Simulated assay, not measured.
Amino acid sequence: MQKEEITYRGAVYPWHCDHVGHMNVMWYVGKFDEATWNLFHRMGITAKYLRENRRGMAAVDQHIEYKRELHAGDVVTVRSTVLELAGKKVRFRHEMVNEGTGEVSAVTTLIGVHLDTDARKACPFPAEIAGA
């Protein structure tokens, strides 16, 4: 397991909010997705790696816990941790914190699969990523 690290910082904008004034669930997922790509980059799963090796990543499982509401103007940070990387899959966790209050707003755990884009099926991570 890796240490937790910051993978996203951003703000909640008025257009992120729903009819009752809270950040809509689609924006939680979007901010977590941006954090995922930053986490992958740090692991060596870069855009260059994916293009040059004809590889891809696919989310196959995601669980989200919404703990505290976010509103327009709130600044958030996502901290991420790789929980497991073995064979063809990676399991990781993101925690979204409201920087103004210090409260955890949401937590998500995901499983991603490493893909061979030519064969259109899952394949093992190379040693340089699996050992990271």
Rank of each mutant, 00 (worst) to 15 (best):
M1I: 04
Q2T: 15
E4T: 13
I6C: 06
I6Y: 05
T7F: 08
R9P: 04
R9T: 12
G10T: 00
A11N: 10
A11Q: 13
A11G: 09
A11Y: 03
V12D: 02
P14A: 11
W15Y: 14
H16A: 02
H19N: 11
H19A: 13
V20S: 09
H22F: 14
H22L: 13
H22K: 04
M23V: 10
M26R: 15
Y28K: 05
Y28L: 03
D33P: 02
D33L: 08
A35F: 05
A35M: 06
A35T: 05
W37F: 14
W37V: 03
N38P: 03
L39R: 01
L39Y: 02
L39H: 00
H41Y: 15
H41K: 11
R42G: 15
R42V: 06
R42M: 14
I45N: 00
T46I: 11
A47D: 14
A47T: 12
A47S: 14
K48N: 15
R55D: 00
R55M: 00
V60L: 10
Q62F: 01
Y66S: 06
E69V: 06
E69F: 10
E69I: 06
E69H: 11
H71C: 08
D74T: 04
V75R: 12
V76K: 04
V76S: 00
V76Q: 01
T81N: 08
L83H: 12
L83M: 13
L85A: 12
V90N: 02
H94G: 03
N98C: 02
N98R: 06
E99K: 09
E99L: 09
E99T: 13
G100W: 05
G102T: 00
V104F: 10
S105E: 01
A106C: 04
G112R: 06
H114F: 03
D116A: 05
A119T: 09
R120L: 14
A122F: 08
A122L: 10
A122M: 12
C123Y: 04
C123A: 11
F125R: 11
F125N: 04
F125D: 01
I129H: 09
I129S: 07
A130H: 06
A130T: 07
G131T: 09
A132Y: 11
